[in-house]
Simulated scan of single mutants.
Amino acid sequence: MSKKKTDESGLEIIETPEALAGKINKAEVFFIKNRKVVVGIVGAVLLALVAFAGYRFYIESQEGTAQQALASVVYDFEADSLQKALNGSGGNEGLLSIADSYKGTDASNLANFYAGVALLKQGKYDDAINHLKSFSSDDLLVHARAQSLIGDAYMEKNQPAEAISYYEKAAGYEKNEYFTPVYLMKLAIAQEKASKPSDAMSTYKRVVDEFPLSSEVVNAKKYMGLLEGQVGK
C-alpha cells in the first residue's frame, strides 16, 4: 500500500510515482471496460449543447420577425377589430398565427394574451382559456390579469368552481389597492354561485377590512348583508 503525506497546505499528496501510475492505470482500465457508456454520455451531452445553441439561435432570429408582425396587428386589436386582429388582414399575420408560428418567442407569448382577450370578447371561451393558459409573464400584475380573465371565461361557461381557483391566484399576486379588491369581489361572487356562502362572506370581509378605501367596499358590504341569513350571522 502506498503511503501518503501531507504538504504545508494541509492537502494529502501521493508519496511515490508508482502509486500515481497505479491510479492512472485503474482509470484506463475503467475507461476501456466502459468505453461505449462513457462515449455515449459524452456524445449525448455534446449533442444537447449543440441542440440548445441551435434552438437559441433560431428563436433569436425569429423574435425580430415575430415582433414586427405583432406590432402590425396590435393596431387592429386596440381598434376593437377583433376578427382582423385574430386572423390578420392585408397580408399581415394575425394573433393566432403569430402565437402558433413563433412559439418560444416573447411575441408569441404576448400574442397568446391578446388572442385570449379577443376570443373572450367574442364569446369563444374555451379557445380564450387555452390561449390565456399558454401566456406567462414576469410582471405579476399582468400575470394576475391573465388569471382573472381565465376566471371570467369559466364564469361565462357557468363553471364557478373552476373560476374560483383562478380568481384566488389573481388576488394572491402582488397585492395592491387597485386590482386586488376587484379580483376578490369576482372571487366572492364565484363562491356564491358555487354554493359556498361562508367562503363568499369571508372574501367580502377581506375587501372591507383590507381595502377600506376601495370603491368595491360599498358593494362588498351590501352583499355581506344579503348573505348574513344564509351563513347564520
Rank of each mutant, 00 (worst) to 15 (best):
M1I: 12
K3S: 12
K5A: 07
G10F: 13
E12K: 11
I13K: 11
I14C: 06
T16G: 10
A19L: 06
A21I: 12
A21Q: 15
K23N: 12
I24M: 13
I24P: 02
N25K: 14
K26I: 08
V29L: 13
V29A: 15
V29H: 11
F30L: 12
R35F: 08
R35W: 00
V38D: 08
V42C: 10
G43D: 09
G43A: 13
L46Q: 07
A48H: 08
L49P: 04
L49E: 06
L49S: 13
L49C: 11
A51W: 12
F52I: 05
G54N: 12
R56F: 10
R56T: 13
A66E: 04
A66R: 02
Q68E: 13
A69D: 12
L70N: 06
A71H: 10
V73N: 01
A79N: 15
D80N: 14
S81A: 13
Q83D: 15
K84A: 11
N87D: 14
G91C: 09
N92V: 07
T105K: 06
T105A: 10
D106S: 10
A107L: 08
S108L: 04
N109R: 11
L110F: 09
A111K: 01
N112A: 08
N112W: 03
F113M: 14
Y114N: 01
A115C: 12
A115N: 08
G116H: 01
V117W: 07
A118G: 07
K121W: 10
Q122W: 04
K124Q: 15
D126N: 14
A128I: 04
A128H: 01
I129C: 04
I129T: 05
L132Q: 04
S137Q: 11
D138P: 09
L141R: 08
L141V: 11
H143K: 15
A144E: 02
R145H: 07
R145Q: 14
A146H: 03
A146N: 06
S148L: 00
L149N: 01
I150T: 04
D152E: 09
D152Y: 01
M155L: 13
M155E: 08
M155C: 05
Q159N: 14
A161G: 11
S165G: 12
Y167F: 14
E168C: 01
K169V: 02
A170T: 02
A171E: 01
Y173W: 07
K175F: 02
N176P: 05
N176Q: 11
F179N: 06
F179L: 09
F179E: 04
V182E: 06
V182S: 02
L184C: 04
L184N: 03
L184G: 00
M185E: 02
K186E: 07
A188G: 00
A190R: 02
P197G: 09
D199A: 09
S202D: 12
Y204P: 00
Y204S: 00
V207Y: 00
V208A: 11
F211Y: 07
P212V: 00
S215L: 07
E216N: 02
V217D: 00
V217W: 00
V218E: 11
V218R: 10
V218K: 10
K221Y: 06
K222D: 01
L226R: 03
E228W: 06
Q230E: 13
